[in-house]
Amino acid sequence: MERYLKANTSKKRTYSLFRQGCMYYKALPMMREAELRPLMERFAQLVREQLVFREAFGLI
């Protein structure tokens, strides 16, 4: 998904990861499910991998 945020002439990242996250968050309400589902599944996987979140949300 990062390729959609880059200028087509640039080979490297043009926005910081924080800025990319802000852009994705802003786009969530209008995002098609085909794009939204992989993004949310990956986010859920990353959250589950973090011990602090497992301890905090483990009961949920």
Results as ranks from 00 to 15, higher is better:
M1S: 02
M1P: 01
E2A: 09
E2R: 11
R3G: 06
Y4D: 01
L5D: 04
L5A: 13
A7S: 12
N8E: 15
S10R: 13
S10G: 05
K12R: 15
K12I: 14
R13A: 15
T14D: 10
Y15W: 15
S16V: 06
S16Y: 04
S16Q: 07
S16W: 02
L17V: 09
L17E: 09
F18N: 09
R19V: 08
Q20L: 12
Q20M: 13
Q20F: 09
Q20A: 10
G21N: 03
C22D: 13
M23E: 12
Y24I: 12
Y25S: 03
K26S: 04
K26Y: 14
K26L: 08
L28Q: 05
M30A: 14
M30I: 13
R32F: 10
R32A: 10
A34F: 10
R37S: 08
R37E: 08
P38R: 00
P38I: 00
P38V: 00
L39P: 04
L39W: 11
R42M: 04
R42W: 04
F43P: 00
F43T: 02
A44C: 07
A44E: 03
Q45E: 05
L46E: 08
V47N: 00
R48N: 03
R48K: 08
Q50D: 08
L51R: 15
L51C: 07
V52Y: 15
F53P: 01
A56K: 14
A56Q: 10
A56E: 10
F57Y: 09
G58M: 04
G58L: 05
I60S: 05
I60V: 09
